[in-house]
Simulated assay, not measured.
Amino acid sequence: MTTARLSAATSILSAVAVGALLVGCSASVSVEKSKPKLSADKLATIVAEKLAATTGRPKPDIACPEDLVGKVGNTTRCRLTADDGSTLGVSVTVSSVDGDQINFDVKADDTASPAAN
């Protein structure tokens, strides 16, 4: 009978020790929600449309070098190329993000660079 009591006591102590280990451990995983992104091509199209609407002129030829990540304050520089080959820098700055919607401001430089010869 002493063997049965020792086995039972050992089992109870083992269960308590395992329970204490499980209760004493915790884990947390933080997964950062991915930020929305606007492709460089789509950004160029939207910038061209905004500039055309603002100036009342046809959509200019715009090229953007990179995707725009939807984080307030992120910026990128696009390039407007005129019919005569001159270029104008255009700054794009994220002003707000609402879910997957990226809102941004567009500002063209004051002076253009002449066409390359």
Rank of each mutant, 00 (worst) to 15 (best):
A53W: 00
E32Q: 14
L43F: 12
L68C: 07
V72D: 06
L43T: 06
L6F: 15
L43K: 13
K71C: 00
V23W: 06
P60D: 05
S34M: 06
E49R: 13
G70Y: 03
L21C: 02
V29F: 01
V72G: 01
I12F: 15
E66S: 11
K42H: 07
G56H: 05
N74V: 05
G19R: 03
G19V: 07
V72F: 01
A63S: 14
V31C: 05
A17H: 00
G19C: 08
L22N: 06
K37Y: 04
A8R: 15
K33C: 00
V47M: 07
A27W: 05
A48N: 09
P58N: 07
P58I: 01
A53K: 14
L51E: 05
S7I: 14
V16R: 04
A8V: 14
K42L: 14
P65W: 04
P65H: 04
R5N: 11
A48I: 02
E66N: 10
K50R: 15
R5A: 15
K71R: 13
V18G: 02
N74M: 01
V31F: 04
L6K: 14
T45Q: 14
K42E: 15
S14W: 08
V16N: 02
S39T: 13
V69T: 12
A15N: 02
D67R: 07
A27G: 13
V69E: 10
V72H: 05
A8N: 12
T45P: 01
V47P: 04
